[in-house]
Amino acid sequence: MKKMNYQEIGNYTKVTEFILVGLSRHPTSQSVVFWTLMFLYIVTLAGNSLIIFLVGGNSQLHTPMYFFLGNLSLLDLLFSTSVVPLIMVNSLYNFSTISYSSCFTQLAFRAFLALAECFLLAIMAYDRFVAISNPLRYNLVMSSRVCIFMALLAWMAALLLTVLPILIFPISFCGQNVVNHFSCEVQAIFKLLCSNTISLQIMMIACAVISMPVPLMFILFSYLCILKAVLRIHPTKARLKAFSTCASHLIVVTIYFGTLIYIYMRPQSKISHNGDKIVSIFYAAVTPMLNPLIYTLRNKDVKAVLRRVNCGVKS
C-alpha cells in the first residue's frame, strides 16, 4: 500500500490526499470492471447526447416536456462524466491517490448534479400534471419563460444546498485517509471525519430532507392528482393514452429515488462494504445510461424524430 501523505499543523494532522482502495484487494476483477464501465459510459454519452441534439434541433420537440428532458440528459451526461472516467482509471491501479482539493471538488460537483436532478424530476411531474389536468391552458401555464425559470430554480437550489454546508461547517480528519471506494463518495469520506460532526450532520439531514423526501412527496402528490384527473376521462383508450405519457417519468423516478434512498437513507456504519461500491457504480454508471433509453424506447415523438433524422442522413 502507498504511504499515507499527511501534513503536520499544530497539534493535529492535516490530510493532503486520499488513498482510494477500489479493487486493489480484488485484482482479478479490475479489467472486467474497466471494460464494463467503458461500455456503459459510451452508451451514456451516445444516448444523452442524442437526446440533447434531438430536443435542441427539432421544432417538433420544442415543448416543455422535452425542454425538461433535455435538462435531464445534460445532468446525466455531466454526472456520469464527473464520476465514471475516474472510477475506470482507479479500477486499474492499486491504491490510487487523489488530492484533498480534487476529492472535495468532485464530491461537491456530484452532490450538486444529484440534487439538481431531484428537483428537476419534481418539476417534470408538475409538467405532466398540468398537461393532463388542464390541457387547454397547458401552453399558457407552462410558457417558455416559466420553463426556463423553473429549470434555473432547480439548478440554483441545488447549488445553494451544496455550497451552504461546506461554507458554514468546515471539516477536519484525524489522519485517516484510506477511502474504501472507487472515488470520493460522500458516505465513504464522512466515515473518516474526526471533527465534531453533530452540527454538520444536522445541516446535511436538513439538506437531504429538502432535496430528497420533499421532491419525492411532491412527485407522489402530483401523480395522485394526475390519477384523479385521468379517472375523469371516460373513453378507456384516451385514459390509457393520457397516463402512458407519464410512464417513462415514473420509471426514471422509481430507479433514481430508489437508489438514492438505499444509499443515503439507510443506517450508516463506520465500516465500508463492497456492496456499497456496487450500488454506487449502479447509481453513477447505469442510471444515467437508462434514462435516455427509457424515454426513447417509450416515446413516439422522439422515435419519429429519430427516424426522420436517420432517413435524412441516409439520403
Rank of each mutant, 00 (worst) to 15 (best):
K2Q: 14
N5G: 12
N5K: 15
N5C: 09
N5D: 14
Y6K: 03
Q7T: 11
I9Y: 10
Y12N: 14
E17W: 04
L20W: 03
P27M: 07
Q30R: 10
S31H: 12
M38H: 09
M38K: 12
T44R: 09
V55M: 02
M65R: 15
Y66P: 00
F68P: 01
L72I: 07
V83Y: 10
N94E: 13
S102G: 10
F104I: 03
L115A: 07
C118R: 02
R128Q: 08
I132P: 00
R137L: 12
N139C: 08
M142D: 04
S143E: 07
M156R: 00
L159K: 00
L164G: 03
I168T: 09
I171R: 14
G175M: 03
N180Q: 13
F182L: 03
I189H: 04
I189P: 04
L192R: 02
L193P: 04
C194S: 12
C194Q: 09
S195G: 12
I198W: 14
I205M: 10
S222I: 04
L224K: 09
L231F: 14
R239E: 13
F243R: 04
F243M: 14
S244H: 06
T245V: 04
A247F: 15
V252E: 05
I255W: 02
Y264D: 10
R266S: 14
A285T: 07
M289I: 13
P292V: 06
K300V: 03
L306S: 07
V309K: 07
V313Y: 15
S315F: 15
